[in-house]
Write a protein that binds this DNA or RNA. Structure first.
Length: 271
DNA sequence: ATGCCTTTGAAGTAC
DNA sequence: GTACTTCAAAGGCAT
C-alpha cells in the first residue's frame, strides 16, 4: 500500500520535481517581528534538485528492516549521497531539499530495487515501537481484533515546519557549544537564534518546509494532521497551563515564580 | 514506561 | 474570522 504510493511518488518526483511555488499551500512568509528594517523578501530561487550535501551523521541502513521499524529521525541512511538537512553547518544549508532522503521524507519500506528498503521515517508504528506481543487468537473477539489492527496502523507524522527543520539542523551545534543536552533548554536557545536570523536565512527554511509539505501531500494524499490528533496522551488543558506558570522547574532547572517571557520578547542576546 | 518541558509554525477545532 | 489546541523533534528528568 505505502510501497506503491511511495514508489509512485518517487518516480513522479524523480522525473517531474515540482516547480518552486507550485504547492497547494500559499507561500509562507517569514514572520515580520524583529525584521522591520529588512527589505521585503521573496523566496530565493532554488538550485536544481538533487544538489546534495553530505551528512555528518550517516547511518548505515539496517540489514533487516522487518525486524525493527522505528522512527529514526536523524539517522539518515547512506543512500549514495542523497542527504539533506543534516548538515552541521548553518552556512552550508542546501538550496534545495534532497527529496527522497530528508529524515522525515525518506522513502518508505520496500521500494522496489532499493538496496536498503528503508522504512519511511514519517511512518512509525503506534507509540513508535514495533509491537511483538504474543497474540492469542482464541481469546480475542473479532471486534477486538479489528480494534487492535486499527491501533497498529502505522502513524504518518506531520511534516516538519521551518523552525523544526532549523532545530534539527542546529541542535547538534548548540549542544556542542553549550554542553547542554536537555532539549527544553536547547530549544529555548534555538528559538532565540531563530528570531535572530535574517529574513533571507529564515526564508531558506520556509522554502524547505514548503517542499516538505508538498512532498508529504504527494506521498500521503489522504493524510490530515487530524489523523494524529489524540494520539499523544496529554494532560488536561488546566493542568498543562498550571504547570507552565506554576511551581515546576523550567528547562534550566530553576523554578520560576511566573511563566517566562516568550522568546520573542527576550533580549536579542543570542547564546 | 510514559509524559513533561520548551521552542515555532501548520493545521485542526470551536465559536 | 478569530482564538485556541494539537503535534511535529529532542533528550533529560519526574512520576
Amino acid at each position: 500500500m505505502y510501497k506503491d504510493t511511495v514508489y509512485s511518488a518517487f518516480n513522479l518526483l524523480m522525473h517531474y520535481p515540482p516547480a518552486s511555488g507550485a504547492g497547494q499551500h500559499p507561500q509562507p512568509q517569514p514572520p515580520l517581528h524583529n525584521k522591520a528594517s529588512q527589505p521585503a523578501h521573496s523566496v530565493p530561487q532554488l538550485s536544481p534538485l538533487y544538489e546534495h550535501f553530505s551528512s555528518p551523521h550517516p547511518t548505515p541502513a539496517p540489514a533487516d528492516i522487518s525486524q525493527k521499524q522505528v522512527h529514526r529521525p536523524l539517522q539518515t541512511p547512506d543512500l549514495s549521497g542523497f542527504y539533506s538537512l543534516t548538515s552541521g553547518s548553518m552556512g552550508q544549508l542546501p538550496h534545495t531539499v534532497s527529496w527522497f532522503t530528508h529524515p522525515s521524507l525518506m522513502l518508505g519500506s520496500g521500494v522496489p530495487g532499493h538496496p536498503a528498503a528503508i522504512p519511511h521515517p514519517a511512518i512509525v508504528p503506534p507509540s513508535g515501537k514495533q509491537e511483538l506481543q504474543p497474540y492469542d487468537r482464541s481469546l480475542k473477539t473479532q471486534a477486538e481484533s479489528k480494534a487492535e489492527k486499527e491501533a497498529k496502523k502505522p502513524t504518518i507524522k506531520k511534516p516538519l515546519n521551518a523552525f523544526m527543520l532549523y532545530m534539527k539542523e542546529m541542535r547538534a551545534k548548540v549542544i556542542a557549544e553549550c554542553t547542554l543536552k536537555e532539549s527544553a533548554a536547547i530549544n529555548q536557545i534555538l528559538g532565540r537564534r531563530w528570531h535572530a536570523l535574517s529574513r533571507e536565512e529564515q526564508a531558506k527554511y520556509y522554502e524547505l518546509a514548503r517542499k516538505e509539505r508538498q512532498l508529504h501531500m504527494q506521498l500521503y494524499p489522504g493524510w490530515s494532521a487530524r489523523d494524529n490528533y489524540g494520539k499523544k496522551k496529554r494532560r488536561s488543558r488546566e493542568k498543562h497551563q498550571e504547570s507552565n506558570t506554576g511551581g515546576k522547574r523550567n528547562a534550566f532547572g530553576t523554578y520560576p515564580e511566573k511563566a517566562a517571557a516568550p522568546a520573542q520578547f527576550l533580549p536579542m542576546t543570542v547564546l
